[in-house]
């Protein structure tokens, strides 16, 4: 593996919430202005730190959803985890105009570097966030690498970035998106709801002979299952990069 250029110390920065958007009933995007942000690569994440008035603090990692445009802005999309300490605060309580401490960018492995091979993105739930950064970065440079996203969500209402994905499938040449619905499908969907299977990845992914760069992200159990299927289908394990967000395993 090539040695990555590593930045110096990752110091804590005080970002400001410049804007916020509801993505779905349970997810919110924070648009953060970060002073002296060095830029980031699609796939990287930040660490966020919240501190209570009595000094108690908590840190969590959040993937960067936006592609870097040299404008000092970094977007995070936070999916609510039931009774979650940090996700609930970022969704319900953090107001536009407020400061938020973070540091990054972190990670030099789960990163798309605009390399030539075709790309297969496999997302479960909020795992689409860093993959969306890759799709956006490719769109910004009008990349021609064939890109496929297989995106597993519970119901159509849970899909993040649904409108933008639909627009990009129309406008970004060589991008396609296939949804998998695990609990409820849209009306008229050809298959009953169900989990990602060998058949899904076989039909909607790239064949292993194409030697695609594969990025799999989501809850730990989803990533385990998807990565196992990809290896069983013959993908080189060295080309399957994974990011596990947590959850019961």
């Amino acid at each position: 593996m090539a040695r990555t250029a590593v930045p110096g110390r990752l110091s804590w920065r005080v970002a400001t919430v410049e804007a916020a958007r509801r993505e779905t009933p349970s997810a919110r995007t924070l648009v953060l202005r970060v002073p002296q942000w060095p830029g980031h690569l699609p796939g990287q994440h930040v660490d966020v730190r919240l501190t209570a008035p009595d000094g108690y603090s908590a840190q969590r990692s959040y993937s960067i959803a936006s592609a870097w445009r040299d404008d000092g802005l970094v977007e995070l999309t936070v999916q609510r985890v039931e009774d979650g300490e940090v996700s609930s605060y970022l969704i319900d309580d953090l107001e536009v105009g407020r400061p938020l401490e973070l540091r990054g960018p972190v990670g030099g492995w789960f990163v798309w570097r605009a390399a030539p091979p075709p790309v297969l993105l496999v997302a479960g739930g909020s795992g689409v966030v860093p993959l969306m950064a890759m799709i956006r970065a490719r769109g910004d440079v009008r990349g021609r690498q064939p890109f496929r996203l297989i995106y597993s969500v519970r119901t159509p209402q849970d899909a993040l970035y649904a409108a933008e994905l639909a627009r990009r499938v129309r406008d970004d040449p060589g991008l396609d998106v296939h949804f998998v619905y695990t609990r409820k499908t849209p009306d008229g969907w050809p298959e009953p709801p169900g989990r990602l299977t060998v058949a899904t990845l076989n039909t909607h992914g790239w064949p292993p002979d194409f030697a695609p760069d594969v990025f799999v992200c989501g809850p730990t159990a989803f990533v385990e299952a998807a990565a196992d299927i990809l290896v069983a289908l013959g993908h080189d394990p060295g080309k399957v990069r994974t990011e596990r967000f947590g959850g019961i395993s």
Partner: peptide
């Protein structure tokens, strides 16, 4: 450190 008003209610 920056204080986040209202944070800490669900602390572990």
């Amino acid at each position: 450190s920056i204080i986040s008003p209202g944070f800490g209610g669900r602390r572990r």
